[in-house]
Nucleic acid binder design. Structure first.
Length: 568
RNA sequence: GGCGCGGUAGCUCAGUUGGUUAGAGCGAACGACUCAUAAUCGUUAGGUCGGGAGUUCAAAUCUCCCCCACGCCA
C-alpha cells in the first residue's frame, strides 16, 4: 500500500472540451486513479477548472455575464459533465478559489524574498475605448509584409511573419474594434527562470524513466537558442489573482494580476486545501509538504503535450525557486493529440465530438473504452466513426457483453438463477493458470501507465473466457455429465465477477452492472484460483440486460454527419 | 528555415540493450459450434519494416543522406 497523488491538467473554463482534450489528460488520470484505489493504495486525485485570463473575460462578455458569475456557472457545467464520464476526482476545484489566491500570492512573495523576481518596464498597446491593455493576439491590422488585412499583433496568419503590434498598419482592438490605441509603459514582474536553469536541467536529467515526449520537450526549452528565459508572471487585467507580495501590497503593481500560467499550476496544491475545506478529507499538507508527511507520496501528473513545458519547467521553477519543501512531480505522463476523421478537433469550428454531445448519444463507458484503448501515447491517434463502431461493437458487445449474456442465460435455462454445484477439473486449472499470467501482464501495464497495452491485456482476459467456453462447450457436456457442466457454468459465472472487478478502471458503469448482477463484491484478485471460487454453489444472481447495444450503421452515418462541423 | 515525435501487413498499432522463418487486434477468406447481442472459437492469406548508402558474422533495431506526414519555434 502506497500513497499516490494524481493530478490531471486543469481544463480552461471557457466552454465544453472535446474528446481529444478528455483522452489527453483527465481520462487516463482517472483510469490510473481508479486502478490504484482498486488495488488498495491511498489516492488523492485532483483536478480543477483554470479560470483566469483574457479568454475567460471575453467569453463572459460574449455571454453577457459578469466574469465571476460566468466562471461559476461554467465550472458547474464542466463538473456535471466530468461526473457523467465517471471521472472520479476526489475534488474538482477552481483556480479562482480563495485558497489559490492566497497560495499564489504566498509563492510570489517567497520568490521575491529569495531574489528570483525582477521588475521590468515594457511598452504595451493600450486601448482607450476598451480601457485596458491588449494582449498581442487581440490586436489586428494590416500586415506590413504582405498586406493581409487581418494580421494579428503577434503574427500574420497569411504570410506567417512574426510581428510586433506596433508594426501593424491601422491596428484595431478585436474586442471592440476601437482604433484609438496607444503605446503605454507598464511595469511587470518576471520570474528569473534563467537562474534556475542548471537546477532544472539536473532535475530533468534525473528523470530517466520519463516518456521521451516529455523530456525532449523540456530539454528543447532548456537548451534552445539562449536557453531558458525569464518569464513575465503578471498581466494588466482585472480578472485574476491580485499581485501581492505574500499578504502585503506590492508597490507599483496595483491593479495588476498574476499571469494565468503562474497561478494555474499552483491550483494543484490549493485544490488539496479546497478538498479539505470542503470536508472531504484532512491534513492536506500530508500530500504536498515533504516535511509534513508527503515524503512517501508518489506524484503523477497527466497532460497533453502542449502543457509539458509548463509542468517540466515553469511550475518546477516556482517550486524549486521557493526553496521550500513542496512535493515535486515524480512522473509526468504526457499524451499526443487525437485527430478527428482526417483532421483536427476544432473548438472554434465545432468540428468533432464534444463531451456533452458524446454523453447525449452513448454511455460514458463506450467512450472510455474506445478512447483509452486508442490513447495517443506514442504518436497522434485518429478517431473515425467506422473504426469506433467496429471496435466498440466487437469488444464491448461481442466479446464482453455477449460472454455475460451467454453464460447467465445458459445457466438460467439449464440450471437456475443460482450458481450450480460442480468441482473444477484440469481444464479449469489450465484456465486459472492462463489467467494468472494474463492478469499479471495487465497489472504490469497498468502499473507502468501503458494505457493501450493495458487495454489490450484486459481484452485478452475477456477473450480467454470465450475460448474456454468454446472448448469446453457446457451445452454439449450437459447432455452426458451434468455435474461437469455445472462446474463449467460455475466457473463462467465467477469469470463475470472477475471481469467486473478487473474492468472497473476502464468501464466503471458496466463493471458495476456485472458485479450487481452477480450479487457480489469488487475485491481486487490477488490469487486467481481463489477469485474464481468466490461465488459458491447456491449463490443467487440475476441475468442482466445486455451490457451494451451495438452501434448501427444508420447511427454511425447520422453522427458522422452531425459532428462534421458547425456547432455554435 | 531550425527543432521535435513519427513513417512496420487493407486499417489501428507492438516490436526491450542489433541475433533463429518480423508480431497482435480489426477487416478478409475458409472451417467448427449453436449456450449467447447473426454472437463465439479455430485455420489461412497478406509486409523487400518510407527510399538509398554504410558499419557488422548479423539491422526494423546503430551511422550518414534523402523523401513524406504531423507538431513546435524562428
Amino acid at each position: 500500500m502506497a500513497r499516490h497523488l494524481i493530478t490531471s491538467a486543469i481544463p480552461y473554463i471557457n466552454g465544453i472540451k472535446h474528446l481529444g482534450n478528455l483522452i489527453g489528460s483527465q481520462l487516463p488520470a482517472d483510469l490510473y486513479a481508479r486502478y490504484l484505489r482498486s488495488t488498495g493504495h491511498e489516492v488523492l486525485f485532483l483536478c480543477a477548472t483554470d479560470e483566469h485570463g483574457t479568454p475567460a473575460e471575453l467569453a463572459a462578455a460574449k455571454a453577457g455575464q459578469p466574469v465571476a458569475e460566468y466562471c461559476a456557472e461554467m465550472h458547474q457545467v464542466q463538473a456535471r459533465i466530468a461526473d457523467g464520464f465517471g471521472l472520479s476526482f476526489d475534488h474538482f476545484g477552481r483556480s479562482s478559489s480563495p485558497q489559490n489566491h492566497a497560495l499564489t500570492q504566498a509563492f510570489a512573495g517567497r520568490l521575491n524574498e529569495v531574489g528570483l523576481i525582477r521588475e521590468v518596464t515594457e511598452e504595451q498597446v493600450y486601448s482607450v475605448t476598451d480601457g485596458r491593455f491588449l494582449p498581442d493576439r487581440y490586436i489586428e491590422g494590416t500586415c506590413p509584409n504582405c498586406g493581409f488585412d487581418s494580421a494579428r499583433g503577434d503574427q500574420c496568419d497569411n504570410c506567417t511573419k512574426q510581428l510586433d503590434p506596433t508594426d501593424l498598419i491601422e491596428p484595431h482592438s478585436t474586442i471592440s474594434g476601437a482604433t484609438d490605441l496607444e503605446v503605454r509603459a507598464t511595469k511587470h514582474l518576471y520570474l528569473m527562470q534563467s537562474n534556475l536553469r542548471d537546477t532544472l536541467q539536473e532535475w530533468i536529467n534525473s528523470k530517466t524513466d520519463w516518456p521521451i515526449l516529455t523530456t525532449s520537450i523540456a530539454n528543447k526549452w532548456l537548451n534552445d537558442g539562449d536557453g531558458l528565459q525569464d518569464r513575465g508572471i503578471t498581466r494588466d487585467l482585472d480578472w485574476g489573482v491580485a499581485v501581492k507580495d505574500g499578504d502585503r501590497d506590492w508597490p507599483g503593481m496595483e491593479g495588476k494580476v498574476f499571469y494565468v500560467w503562474f497561478d494555474a499550476p499552483i491550483e494543484y496544491i490549493a485544490c488539496a486545501q479546497e478538498w479539505q475545506d470542503a470536508g472531504k478529507g484532512a491534513d492536506w499538507e500530508r500530500w504536498w509538504r515533504t516535511d509534513k508527511g508527503a515524503d512517501d507520496v508518489t506524484y503523477t501528473q497527466f497532460m497533453g503535450k502542449d502543457n509539458v513545458p509548463f509542468h517540466t519547467l515553469s511550475f518546477p521553477a516556482t517550486i524549486l525557486g521557493s526553496d521550500q519543501p513542496w512535493k515535486l512531480v515524480d512522473y509526468i505522463k504526457s499524451f499526443n493529440y487525437l485527430n478527428y476523421d482526417g483532421g483536427q478537433f476544432s473548438t472554434s469550428r465545432g468540428r468533432g465530438v464534444f463531451m456533452d454531445q458524446a454523453l447525449d448519444i452513448l454511455p460514458a463507458d463506450v467512450w472510455r473504452w474506445w478512447l483509452l484503448s486508442h490513447a495517443p501515447e506514442s504518436s497522434d491517434a485518429e478517431f473515425t466513426w467506422e473504426a469506433f463502431q467496429t471496435d466498440v461493437n466487437k469488444d464491448l458487445a461481442d466479446v464482453l457483453g455477449n460472454f455475460v449474456s451467454r453464460i447467465t442465460k445458459f445457466c438460467r435455462s439449464k440450471f437456475s438463477d443460482a450458481v450450480p454445484d460442480g468441482a473444477y477439473g484440469p481444464a479449469e486449472d489450465a484456465l486459472i493458470a492462463d489467467l494468472t499470467e494474463k492478469v499479471a501482464a495487465y497489472q504490469a501495464h497498468m502499473d507502468a501507465i501503458e494505457v493501450r497495452k493495458a487495454a489490450a491485456a484486459l481484452r485478452a482476459i475477456w477473450v480467454a473466457g470465450n475460448e474456454y467456453l468454446q472448448a469446453e462447450a457446457p451445452w454439449t457436456t450437459i447432455k452426458e455429465d451434468e455435474a461437469k457442466a455445472a462446474a463449467q457454468v460455475r466457473l463462467g459465472l465467477n469469470l463475470i465477477r472477475l471481469y467486473g472487478v478487473l474492468s472497473a478502471p476502464f468501464i466503471p458503469t458496466m463493471s458495476k452492472t456485472m458485479l450487481e448482477s452477480m450479487n457480489t463484491d469488487d475485491a481486487w484478485p490477488t490469487d486467481i484460483a481463489a477469485a474464481l471460487d468466490t461465488l459458491k454453489p447456491g449463490h443467487a444472481f440475476t441475468v442482466p440486460e445486455n451490457l451494451f447495444s451495438k452501434i448501427t450503421d444508420d447511427q454511425r452515418v447520422e453522427w458522422a454527419e452531425r459532428f462534421a462541423g458547425g456547432r455554435d
